[in-house]
Amino acid sequence: MLLRNRLHSLQFVSLLSPPSSSYSISAKPQPFILSLRNNISSSARWNHSQDISASKTTESPSVSDTTRFVRNVLFVPPGVDPDEVTEDMVLPGSNIVIGPYAGDAKIKQVEFVKSSGRAKDCPKDDRPEFAILGRSNVGKSSLINSLVRKKEVALTSKKPGKTQLINHFLVNKSWYMVDLPGYGFAKASEAARMDWSSFTKGYFLNRNTLVAVLLLVDASVPPQKIDLDCANWLGRNNIPLTFVFTKCDKMKGGKGKRPDENVRDFQELIRENYEQHFPPWIMTSSVSGFGRDELLLHMSQLRNYWDQ
């Protein structure tokens, strides 16, 4: 069975309701909780309040608020009973529960393999891979360099849209990290943007070794419609994804919102198109290293499940 179907059958992927015709980016979001009610203390990181009973759910009234929250808000991987999730199982700054498939997450070796202009030219072995995708200037290359603890593994540039090919990096000789072209760079021609859409979507739809897409979202700015559109397209096509919020160290002053507030706003907007089982998400900073080890641990449990 294809990985995509295996993950879908285990509710790794959320089913999307038809997307709304427009996004109310300026709409005031409802309060959102990022920690376990009852099981997690009110002082937990990024804790907010939420009336869980008002959330969309098909659960029986006899199901406890905590259980309903765990099933509909947290990312619970295979091998974990939602009724047994505790505070110490949830990664800081995320909704990700760590289960028995989590293993050695250290990156010991990384090497560039090839750049491909078409999906069919990508490496043809059976190694699992994670695709890293995001709007131009979201900090994609910086995150890759932070994950592997090497400078210039991915090409960083102050000029958006620098990466124009599908770049495969082999990690520990066992799995791939795939650097995809950034989307939404304003100075690109319409033809170039269409070419990006065509060959990148072809990669997503035809890559059977794809474990998950790491969709990077800039937490230092308000939610962007282009990111919401990309997330909804991936969801409609049953492609597993993890939201990786970048630049979480950039604390805004004055009228600007803090990163955790922008993260909350984004989650509330994307939730409008997810019926249940919100995708995994995690907050990161390539500057401070916040979220680095946790993201790698999350990737390890997805990869180890794929490898079984």
Results as ranks from 00 to 15, higher is better:
I226P: 04
Q276I: 03
G256S: 06
K114L: 09
A102P: 07
M177D: 02
K140C: 06
R236F: 01
R45P: 05
I144N: 11
I40H: 07
L143F: 05
G253M: 04
V213S: 05
M1C: 06
D265Y: 03
V63H: 04
L216Y: 03
Y176D: 02
I270E: 08
Y183P: 03
G289Y: 04
L296V: 08
R45C: 13
S24F: 03
L228Y: 06
Q50T: 04
K150M: 14
N145A: 09
F199P: 10
G139V: 02
E87S: 15
F290N: 01
D104S: 13
K158F: 02
N238D: 15
R135C: 11
T209A: 14
S288D: 01
S189E: 08
Q276Y: 02
G235C: 05
T156Y: 06
G117S: 11
F12P: 00
G99M: 03
F112N: 04
D83Q: 13
S22A: 14
K255Q: 07
K114F: 00
L143Q: 06
I107P: 04
F130G: 07
N95S: 07
V76T: 06
K250I: 08
S141K: 09
R236E: 15
R45V: 14
V70A: 06
R135H: 14
V263P: 00
A119W: 15
D249A: 01
N304D: 05
V80P: 07
L296T: 10
I226Q: 14
N72F: 00
S35W: 11
W233C: 14
R149L: 10
L3A: 13
G254Y: 01
S174C: 12
P31S: 10
A154Y: 11
F69S: 07
L241Q: 14
C230L: 09
G254F: 00
L2H: 14
N38E: 15
P31C: 02
V221S: 08
D104V: 11
A27L: 05
D260R: 03
T284N: 04
L143V: 12
R258D: 07
V171K: 09
L3D: 09
N145Q: 11
T67M: 07
N145E: 11
V85R: 03
N39M: 08
D229K: 11
K106G: 00
T200V: 15
K201S: 12
R258F: 01
L15A: 15
Q301V: 11
I52D: 03
G184N: 12
T58H: 12
K250D: 01
L143A: 05
E268A: 05
L170F: 08
P92W: 03
G79A: 11
V138P: 04
G103L: 06
V76M: 03
P82W: 00
I226N: 14
H8S: 15
F75M: 10
E59T: 04
L34Y: 02
P78S: 13
V178E: 02
G253D: 07
W175V: 03
I132Y: 04
S20R: 13
V217Q: 06
